[in-house]
Design a protein around this nucleic acid. Structure first.
Length: 431
DNA sequence: GTAATATTGTT
DNA sequence: ACAATATTA
């Protein structure tokens, strides 16, 4: 049996069920496609992927390729559609089985369906949920239909009844003869239609993509500096790389698994200290799972104007409001500083995200999907479920039972009392 | 009807 | 600690 592993958002060799299973084949190859559709404009005119995440992804694939080579597995890399690439690979390498992570959002489903339609019917596909902390088989709900609409109800039931699986090991290496020399290349930013850039020295996310870098971040944030032990107290910070874990970016493309992080926290709690702060990182991983289950339950509604509530609010779509919000030219300096940070780095703190989202949808009353689409374009750590779920939540069409509106000046005085953050991004450029 | 008081959910 | 709802008086 010859196996192929098709990488999408599971770009790692550790705790990767699909890879581990594929490695049982006689011959094993791997493929990643930079899908041109991911770099085109969306319905709102934003490029679906901007330069910051694209670069992070390129670094991720380079690292994945190196780590797979250690296992004597070739990673073919293409700048083309999977439904074009995979049928050729299947034919040339006489592939019997294709292993991949299970996705469920409409665009991912459409691509998967095209691939199925374009390979011989005898080819077998095996998918696996590998992006969860609480595996769908282990949650205490009979069906996705019964996922609670209130986060706390979801969290408490999962914490009480759901076991968290152990991680899958790195597979054993194949024989060196399994490795096939190939000349496929990771595309450049220019080839993806994006401009090159130098990293802004003020960035809160000065990290590179890839599984090794994710592990380095854990080594640093958990073990070397012990900052995990202060996470709950510092996580609403705004400046610098260490106010929060920053693991979201590697989690989003699957360079590291939620379970790997969970078991590292457990180890830290055993060997160093267990406190509210260490728990809070797990708490945040549960939020991440929650939005995946919300999207499994509600499917395409997470992209609709009325959200999962079918709410009927008045929404504007003002070109000038959009331009001013994006450029950081609104009446709220705290919003402006955060929006400039996003435009210049591809990163914004969690505190900032909640504020600029609330301002956009609740204060300006603009179509919340425009805000969500802009975040999708810009964020290094974009994850479809967290992004659209959080935007629904902050826009009053999602899972917030209170439909809160942020008092922005108050938030600014609480979280940026001395104005350091606002100054960092708003002061006139010195020359 | 209003106003005080309790409950809810929280990144 | 808070703000939006729900309940009680």
């Amino acid at each position: 049996m010859n196996n192929l592993i098709w990488f999408r958002n599971d770009l790692r060799v550790t705790d990767n069920e699909s890879l581990l299973k594929a490695m049982n084949g006689n011959n094993v190859i791997a493929v990643y496609c930079f899908d041109p559709r991911h770099y085109e404009a969306d319905n709102f005119g934003f490029k679906k992927t901007e330069k910051y995440r694209a670069k992070f992804l390129m670094e991720t694939i380079a690292n994945l390729r190196a780590n797979l080579k250690q296992l004597n597995v070739t990673l073919f890399v293409f700048h083309d559609k999977p439904e074009v690439v995979l049928p050729k690979l299947v034919k040339e390498n006489e592939i019997n089985n294709i292993f991949l992570q299970k996705e469920w959002t409409s665009e991912e489903n459409a691509v998967f369906d095209s691939v199925i339609a374009n390979v011989p019917a005898l080819v077998n596909f095996e998918t696996a949920y590998q992006q969860f902390l609480f595996h769908p088989d282990d949650i205490p709900f009979d069906s996705f239909e019964n996922i609670p609409e209130v986060f706390t109800n979801f969290r408490k039931k999962c914490e009480k009844y759901a076991q968290i699986k152990s991680t899958y090991p790195i597979p054993e290496s194949k024989n060196p003869t399994n490795f096939i020399a190939n000349t496929t290349k990771i595309p450049t930013l220019a080839q993806l239609g994006l401009s090159d850039f130098t990293t802004d020295s003020r960035t809160a996310f000065p990290f590179k993509g890839g599984e090794d870098e994710a592990n380095n971040r854990i080594a640093s944030y958990f073990w070397e500096t012990g900052k995990l032990a202060h996470y709950k107290k510092t996580r609403n910070g705004l400046i610098g790389k260490d106010y929060s874990s920053k693991l979201s970016a590697w989690l989003a493309n699957g360079s590291i698994s939620a379970r790997t992080i969970y078991w590292q926290v457990k180890k830290f709690e055993k060997e160093v200290i267990k406190n509210q702060d260490t728990y809070w990182l797990i708490f945040e991983l549960i939020w991440r799972d929650y939005f995946k289950y919300v999207s499994l339950k509600h499917q395409n509604k997470i992209f609709h104007l009325g959200g999962i509530l079918n709410a009927d609010y008045h929404w504007d779509n003002a070109r000038l409001a959009k331009e001013n919000w994006i450029k950081g030219n609104t009446k709220e300096p705290f919003v402006n500083a955060n929006m400039k940070e996003l435009a210049l780095t591809g990163w914004m703190s969690n505190r900032g995200r909640q504020n600029v989202a609330s301002f956009w949808s609740k204060e300006l009353e603009q179509d919340w999907r425009i805000g969500a689409a802009y975040f999708e374009s810009m964020l290094i750590d974009y994850d479809v479920h967290s992004n659209w779920g959080n935007w629904m939540y902050n826009s009053g069409v999602g899972n917030d039972p209170r439909n809160r509106k942020f008092n922005i000046p108050r938030q600014a005085s609480m979280y940026d009392a001395n104005g350091k953050f606002q100054k960092l991004w708003l002061q006139e450029t010195l020359f």
